[in-house]
Design a protein around this nucleic acid. Sequence first.
DNA 1: TTAAATGTAATAAAATATGTTACAATTTGG
DNA 2: CCAAATTGTAACATATTTTATTACATTTAA
Lengths: 135, 135
Amino acid sequence: MNNTRLSTALHILSLLAHNDGNLLTSEWIAGSIGVNPVIVRKEISVLKKAGLVESLAGKEGGTRLALSAKKIKLADVYQAVRQSSLLGKQNQHPNPACPVGKNINAELATLYAEAEQKVLNFLGKKTLAEFSKVF
Amino acid sequence: MNNTRLSTALHILSLLAHNDGNLLTSEWIAGSIGVNPVIVRKEISVLKKAGLVESLAGKEGGTRLALSAKKIKLADVYQAVRQSSLLGKQNQHPNPACPVGKNINAELATLYAEAEQKVLNFLGKKTLAEFSKVF
DNA sequence: TTAAATGTAATAAAATATGTTACAATTTGG
DNA sequence: CCAAATTGTAACATATTTTATTACATTTAA
């Protein structure tokens, strides 16, 4: 997760939470984040697949939350944008002739999954409403 | 942490733990991981600064643990290789004229630090000895 | 004194992430 | 119906990060 995707997603969702029901355009959102509107549309596409937002095409179109901000957990957002293991990639070509090389990736997978679960538990207790109420 | 550095470090340390006291060369370690020996030496350099391993230069040189595997916590390893926030980068150019843009990075920093602390707590309970005993 | 190792800088290559352009499809209002 | 504004997405370009490689000075044991 060495990228800005979760930050971008939380920024988008915070803006939507602050404009409850109103449709915001990707261009307007992009202006608040300071990125290209296409980046915003791509991230919105991901959030849409997760059922967190909905969009209307065409003139006067835009995006709004699909759920109340109280019902959106930060864990849902994380899972929507998540691409790879939190603690990193496993070693790519471990030597199967070595007892450590042969088994390390399975062991790492377990460890990383457990660590990630701790983060999910934490993020599962926080809602978008709480996160965005300070703005 | 979208890289293999923690995996590589744990692989190195597991090999050292399994050869208690013996000096292992970067070339030998690299052969088990399946990477270039210079990658191993660079990672060892980082682990050395953290006080986890020690090396001897010259012929018959190599690297060994500087502490018993029971005294090395996986949190120490994580902190040694850690470079950036676990949950990613903050947004780079948020618009200060927007209430959300103005404050989001501070809010993200707090959230990300708390999440990372959960991982540190988890990894602080695990030792290298436990992690590597299965090999 | 030679061979084998570390330590590290410099560079190259590969992989990821971000940005941009373009344009079809959709939808509203005039 | 038409023009304007928007989404959705593909294709491509650029930038950044990660990994690999080469080179070589330094250290140390036999």
